[in-house]
Design a binder for these strands. Structure first.
Lengths: 208, 208
DNA sequence: CTTAGCTTGTGAATGATTTCACAAGCCATC
DNA sequence: GATGGCTTGTGAAATCATTCACAAGCTAAG
């Protein structure tokens, strides 16, 4: 398959959210224009995004909401449930572990790890926090496909190395530091400070 | 000023982080190549990013670390401290309110709000949680420049409307729903589900 | 003062993404 | 089954972002 731009994947995820809302409202079909409007983009963009993966609509009619939901789910790989481990049970890690929104979207938290002995053994919403020393053993057992790093900046690279060596191929990093991944591993970073700095730049430079 | 791409601003924030590390290590100068290597980009990219804002280096020598830090801080608008309010003191909101990393980067949390009467009046790391009904009054008093929304999806749009009407022009949204902003307001969204879906797509399609 | 060795700053070239614009196709109606 | 009113899917054009490539300029050494 031709390389797909990240912006396209991001928009597909967004379309999926609108389509689900649309379905809940009982609408059976939707046009690229309507979908674009909810997502703040253009109808041509919507059609182009979908065209990379096939042809899902009917000319003159638009898209069947139900079918398009299924198609986008398939494109994104969401027909299956993805097991996730959370590494670091501090404020952010604990908040994520207890956030129920994931389960409903096909992501299942199967393990939470921390070094702090006072946290190990505690329950977070039914999930027992395990010792970080057991990371490799437990990854072998639980076979998570994605790891979410919620550890301090200093610890992040070492833990990234450990989870990838143990076989995890996709990592979401919340630690406020850039990381280096081995080839074949996908890394995404959520960095609050960077987001705020982009806002500060916008305010400073009077952008809308 | 010519329009600056978001990707450029994001990289500047990244460069700033590396420069600070570099400074802590006692290095006085840095070349675009070295800076590029830490950030996983190219030297031409670094120079082009900076060239939008002026000329900060010396040919043959590179950049003075201290000076470049000051310059990038000025570009991003980080010479000043930016007052922030956090709306919603649930798991994520509380975690952010107690995260000290912001203060050290020039963002100061001046208020935290929630509707839940059992949370109002509680202290989060010295910060009293205020009633959401006082939002407008307190925004008028505290004059925050940025609002961070950590409320449930259903409540997000209404609160965005309230903070923008009260004069806030930059918003960071953690609610898992797309929002519409009035002209002149900058909105950024951090959506965990979307990040995970992009990872799921990468895993499904065998991308590196 | 001149040369050698670097590194910046920047137009030009390339590559990627978005937007345009329209033929092709579907449905409803007559 | 022909017409009109829509909407898709998609090459082509336009816009935006990155990379190339090199003149200009600085320092150090002789």
């Amino acid at each position: 398959m031709k390389h797909i731009a990240e912006s396209t994947v991001r928009r597909l995820s967004l379309y999926l959210r609108f389509l689900e809302e649309f379905e809940a409202q009982g609408n059976a079909t939707i046009s690229s224009g309507e979908l674009a409007q909810s997502g703040g983009t253009t109808s041509a963009q919507v059609r182009k995004d979908l065209s990379f993966f096939g042809s899902f609509g009917k000319r003159g009619l638009g898209y069947t909401v139900k079918d398009l939901i299924v198609s986008i789910r398939e494109i994104l790989g969401l027909q299956q449930s993805w097991p996730i481990v959370i590494v670091g049970a501090g404020k952010i890690g604990a908040a994520l572990a207890q956030y129920h929104g994931f389960a409903t979207r096909g992501f299942k938290i199967v393990g939470v790890f921390d070094t702090d002995p006072s946290k190990v053994g505690q329950k977070l919403d039914g999930m027992v926090v395990r010792a970080e020393s057991e990371l490799e053993k437990e990854i072998g057992r639980l076979k998570p496909r994605i790891a979410v790093l919620c550890v301090p900046a200093e610890a992040a690279q070492a833990l990234l190395d450990r989870v990838t060596r143990a076989g995890v191929r996709a990592v979401l990093n919340f630690a406020p530091t850039p990381l280096v991944v081995p080839k074949g591993v996908t890394l995404r970073a959520v960095n609050m400070a960077t987001e705020l700095e982009i806002l500060a730049f916008a305010l400073t430079n009077g952008a809308a």
